[in-house]
Amino acid sequence: MRIEVLVDVKTTLGEGPVWDVAEQRLYWIDSLGCKVYRCTANGREVRAWDVPERIGSMALRRRGGAVLALANGFHFLDFKSGETQLIVDPEPGEVSNRLNDGKVDRQGRFVVGSMDVNEEGPNGALYRLDPDLSLHRLDDKIICSNGPCWSPDGRTFYFADSWSGEIWAYDYELDTGSASNRRTFAKLDTSSGGAADGSTVDAEGYLWNAQVYDGRLIRYSPEGKVDRVIEMPVKKVTSVNFGGPNMDILYVTSMSKPPLPRFPVDGIQGGSLFAIYDLGVRGIEEPRFGG
């Protein structure tokens, strides 16, 4: 195994790596810098798009372009023009909240959670945007939504409220997109100040979680047991996703500045996009949004 800095763009809050199998490109975002980035598997041909608000997550669309979870609602992004178009704001008037982490399920629905911007109050909720652009609430009373992903068969949905100290599992209904029977999947060791951030599931059904402020990536078995621990060169790792020509490179985002004063700072590599090679594990292609 080896860890390399793939792109050194010093994202303020790097998040949400997404590998595009069709175009063989990696996308990721700077949540606080209001940008979407793209590069090749080896970190070349870097391109960026500005977006008008803080961005929590993005997913590619079957029709081209992307769907974004911006601070004040779901938007489409046209890569050719750079223009964004509002779809719906799920929390109008909630000035203390913003949309955060999200991913697309196997049926093409975009599941995104909101968060309290001060990461203190349980003001957030979990939403599902369907391909017909209808909006549905799946859960609520969340402080900081993070780490949505699914088991390979799509029937188990994983999600975390970062400050709960847990990663949860839900039963996920394939036909309707409903989530039920929330339970604890894994408990984190939070003694050093870490919290659950972005996650992905590999082809073997193991969940990988970036534990922000603790500088570790944890691989959990389908039973929620710690299988592997990777110590990263920075503390503020934020999200993970597999990609590359063989889907065997683990891409890891990080932040250059903490969003709040109480969080620790990193060295010169903070904000870099990292690539981890030779893990002996492959990922699963991320579905595209159907709308």
Rank of each mutant, 00 (worst) to 15 (best):
V201D: 08
V201K: 05
D202S: 13
D202H: 13
D202L: 06
A203V: 14
A203E: 15
A203M: 08
G205Y: 10
G205V: 09
G205T: 09
Y206S: 09
Y206T: 04
L207Q: 01
L207G: 03
W208K: 07
N209I: 06
N209L: 01
A210R: 05
Q211V: 15
Q211H: 06
Y213P: 04
Y213T: 14
Y213A: 14
Y213G: 00
Y213H: 12
Y213L: 11
G215M: 08
G215Q: 07
R216A: 12
R216S: 03
L217S: 02
Y220Q: 05
Y220F: 15
S221D: 03
E223F: 01
G224M: 00
K225N: 02
K225H: 04
K225C: 03
V226N: 03
V226W: 04
D227V: 06
R228L: 10
R228D: 12
R228V: 02
I230S: 01
I230L: 11
I230N: 03
E231P: 01
M232H: 04
M232G: 00
M232L: 07
M232T: 00
P233Y: 15
P233R: 09
V234R: 07
V234D: 06
K235H: 13
K235V: 15
K235A: 15
K235Y: 12
K236Q: 13
K236T: 05
V237I: 15
V237H: 05
V237F: 07
T238L: 11
T238P: 08
T238E: 08
S239G: 00
V240A: 09
V240E: 06
V240Q: 02
N241Y: 02
F242E: 04
F242V: 13
F242S: 05
F242A: 03
G244M: 05
G244K: 12
G244N: 11
G244Y: 11
P245A: 12
P245I: 05
P245L: 15
N246Y: 15
N246S: 10
N246C: 11
M247Q: 15
M247F: 13
D248E: 11
D248K: 10
D248G: 07
D248W: 07
D248S: 08
L250G: 04
L250F: 04
L250H: 03
L250Y: 08
L250A: 07
L250D: 05
Y251W: 08
Y251G: 11
Y251M: 09
V252K: 00
V252I: 06
V252R: 02
V252P: 04
T253C: 07
T253E: 02
S254P: 13
S254V: 06
M255N: 02
M255L: 12
S256I: 08
S256H: 15
K257L: 14
K257N: 08
K257P: 04
K257E: 05
P258S: 10
P258M: 09
P258G: 01
P258C: 06
P258F: 03
L260R: 12
L260M: 12
L260W: 09
L260F: 09
P261T: 11
R262E: 07
R262W: 05
F263R: 10
F263Q: 13
